[in-house]
Computed example of a mutant assay.
Amino acid sequence: MKKDDSINAMNGVLVVCGTDPVTGFFRDGHCNTCEADQGSHTVCAVMTAEFLAYSKYVGNDLSTPRPEFGFLGLNVGDPWCLCASRFLQAHDEGCAPKVHLAATHKRALEIVPLEILKENALPA
């Protein structure tokens, strides 16, 4: 699988989203993507209690450990490369997590308008 260029939503160099736990489609700490990433794991989101509860409610439990998959579960404050469509869905429901723009891949813009990402961005 060839990665897309590592460019962030602001047309800069894509920075690390998170390494504890290691995130990303490629599990390299970055929200890199490629054609095989059908979920578009491109939004670097910082988990909140509200978002984790919402995600569990809609069928994607990110907080419960799944050791059989090497997944320890996410906690409030953990950064995670979130599917762009899930981020937009959470935004539309009023419970979007905060976004690290420099760590959000440019391909997220194919699904989430830049204005919405900026609205939910962490302070620079």
Rank of each mutant, 00 (worst) to 15 (best):
M1F: 14
K2N: 11
K3A: 05
K3Y: 03
K3N: 05
D4C: 01
D4A: 11
D5C: 06
I7G: 04
N8Q: 08
M10D: 03
N11C: 09
N11R: 10
N11M: 10
G12I: 10
L14N: 07
L14T: 06
V16F: 09
C17L: 12
G18R: 02
T19A: 06
P21E: 02
T23Q: 07
G24L: 01
F26T: 00
D28R: 05
D28M: 06
G29L: 06
G29F: 07
H30T: 07
H30Q: 08
C31Y: 00
T33I: 06
T33C: 12
C34N: 12
E35V: 14
E35L: 09
E35F: 06
E35S: 15
A36Q: 12
A36R: 10
D37K: 03
Q38M: 14
Q38T: 14
G39C: 11
S40K: 13
S40T: 02
T42G: 07
T42Q: 10
T42Y: 05
C44Y: 02
C44F: 08
C44R: 03
V46S: 04
V46H: 03
V46F: 15
M47L: 12
T48C: 04
T48E: 14
A49G: 15
A49E: 15
F51L: 01
F51H: 02
L52P: 03
A53F: 10
Y57A: 14
Y57G: 10
Y57P: 00
V58S: 01
G59I: 12
G59Q: 12
G59R: 11
D61S: 07
D61I: 12
D61Q: 09
D61A: 12
L62I: 05
S63W: 13
S63H: 15
T64I: 11
T64Y: 12
P65H: 13
P65Q: 01
R66V: 15
R66D: 15
E68S: 11
F69Y: 14
F71I: 06
L72K: 15
G73T: 09
G73H: 00
L74Y: 13
V76G: 04
G77M: 10
D78Q: 11
D78F: 02
P79H: 14
P79E: 15
R86F: 00
F87Y: 14
L88T: 05
A90Q: 09
H91Y: 15
D92V: 01
D92Y: 07
D92T: 07
E93Q: 13
E93H: 15
G94D: 08
C95M: 08
A96P: 09
A96C: 08
V99G: 02
H100C: 14
A102M: 03
A102H: 09
A102Q: 13
A102L: 03
A103S: 13
A103E: 01
R107N: 13
R107T: 13
R107M: 05
A108R: 06
L109V: 03
L109T: 00
L109R: 01
L109S: 01
E110L: 05
I111K: 02
V112W: 00
V112R: 02
P113N: 05
E115R: 08
E115C: 01
E115I: 04
I116T: 04
L117K: 08
L117F: 00
L117M: 10
K118A: 08
L122A: 00
L122H: 07
P123V: 03
A124F: 03
